[in-house]
Every structure is written in C-alpha cells, then in structure tokens.
Amino acid sequence: NQASVVANTLIPINTALTLVMMRSEVVTPVGIPAEDIPRLVSMTVNRAVPLGTTLMPDMVKGYA
C-alpha cells in the first residue's frame, strides 16, 4: 500500500506548507503520494485542512 500525505496539524487556508505540517501514512482513500512531500513544501492550501486529513491534489494550489 502506498503512503499518502496527511496533515500533522490543523493547516489554515492559504498557509504555505512546511515539512512539520505533513506526515506520511497509509490511508483510504489514497491522497497525494508521500514521495511528493518535498515538492509540496512552500505550496499553499486552498482550504483549511484539519489534523489527520489526507491531502488531496485539489487542496494544494499548483499541485494538480
């Protein structure tokens, strides 16, 4: 099973992502692959992402 990116904290809308905000976890449904974490750093989220939420491609500006 592939690990996905999961919010390690509440990420407010329009926040630039940092490494400490994200962790990898095997979850269903599958979200952004964990190997993309380095690429996500400094990208911003377009909605509030609660703790434990899987990051989906449409949640990160410029990812999809």
Rank of each mutant, 00 (worst) to 15 (best):
N1C: 05
N1Q: 14
Q2H: 10
S4F: 02
S4V: 01
S4A: 03
S4R: 01
V5D: 01
V5Y: 02
V6S: 02
A7D: 01
L10Y: 12
L10G: 11
I11V: 07
P12A: 11
P12W: 03
I13N: 14
I13V: 14
N14M: 14
N14W: 11
T15M: 10
T15G: 05
A16C: 07
A16Y: 14
L17M: 06
L17G: 01
T18R: 09
L19T: 08
V20P: 08
M21W: 03
M21V: 04
M21A: 05
M21S: 07
M22N: 00
R23T: 06
E25Q: 12
V26H: 08
V26I: 12
V27L: 05
T28M: 12
T28K: 04
P29N: 05
V30N: 13
G31F: 03
G31Y: 02
G31W: 03
G31K: 02
I32E: 01
I32W: 02
I32G: 00
P33F: 09
P33S: 12
P33M: 09
E35I: 13
E35Q: 07
D36E: 11
D36N: 12
D36T: 06
D36K: 07
D36R: 10
I37N: 00
I37G: 04
P38S: 10
P38H: 10
R39M: 09
L40I: 14
L40W: 02
V41L: 14
V41H: 04
V41D: 03
V41G: 01
S42E: 07
M43W: 07
T44S: 13
V45E: 00
A48F: 10
A48Y: 12
A48W: 10
A48M: 12
V49K: 01
V49F: 03
V49S: 02
V49L: 11
P50I: 07
G52F: 05
T53F: 14
T54V: 14
L55I: 15
L55A: 01
L55E: 02
M56G: 05
P57K: 08
M59H: 10
M59K: 02
M59T: 06
V60R: 01
G62M: 10
G62I: 04
Y63H: 04
A64S: 13
A64D: 15
